[in-house]
Simulated assay, not measured.
Amino acid sequence: MTLSHKLSPGPRAAAASLAVALALLAPTPARAHFLELIPSADIVGAEGNRAVRLDLAFTHPMERGPVMEMAPPVRFGVVADGKTRDLKSTLKPRKLGDKTAFEAAFTPDAPGDYVFFVEPAPYWEAGEGKWITHYTKVVVDFASGEGWDRLVGLPVEIEPLARPYGLWTGNLFRGIVRKAGKPVPFATVEVEWRNDGSVTAPADPFVTQVIKADAQGQFAYAMPRAGWWGFAALVDGDKPVKSPEGKPAKAELGGLIWLRTVDMK
Score class of each variant (00 low, 15 high):
W124Q: 08
E103I: 01
D109F: 10
A104N: 03
P108V: 01
E119P: 00
G129P: 06
P93Q: 13
G127T: 14
Y123Q: 09
G129Y: 02
P93W: 12
A104Q: 04
A126I: 04
F106S: 06
E103C: 01
G127R: 15
G129D: 07
A121N: 08
V115R: 09
G97Q: 10
E103Y: 00
A101E: 05
P122E: 03
E119T: 11
K95A: 13
A105P: 00
P120T: 12
A101Y: 01
P111A: 13
P108S: 04
V118T: 01
D98K: 12
P111S: 11
V118A: 04
A105K: 07
P111W: 14
P108E: 03
G127H: 14
Y123A: 13
F117S: 03
G97W: 10
K99W: 07
P122F: 05
F102S: 02
G129T: 07
V115L: 08
D109A: 10
A110T: 11
D98F: 05
E125M: 11
A101G: 11
T100D: 09
P122A: 02
E125C: 10
K95G: 08
P93K: 10
A105E: 11
P120Q: 15
V118Q: 05
P111Y: 12
A121W: 07
W124V: 10
R94T: 08
V115Y: 05
P108T: 02
E119N: 06
F106R: 01
Y123C: 04
T100K: 05
V115C: 07
T100I: 08
D98H: 10
L96P: 00
T100C: 08
E128I: 00
G97D: 09
F106V: 03
A104D: 01
T100Q: 08
G112D: 10
A105S: 11
A101H: 06
G97R: 10
K99S: 12
L96W: 08
G97V: 09
E128V: 00
V115W: 07
F106N: 04
E125Q: 14
K99A: 14
F117P: 09
A126K: 13
D113E: 15
A126M: 05
P120A: 14
F116I: 04
V115E: 03
F102M: 02
V115F: 02
P108R: 04
W124P: 09
P120Y: 12
Y123W: 14
D109E: 15
P122S: 03
G97I: 09
G112H: 11
L96T: 04
A104E: 01
W124G: 12
F116R: 05
F106Y: 14
A121L: 11
K99T: 12
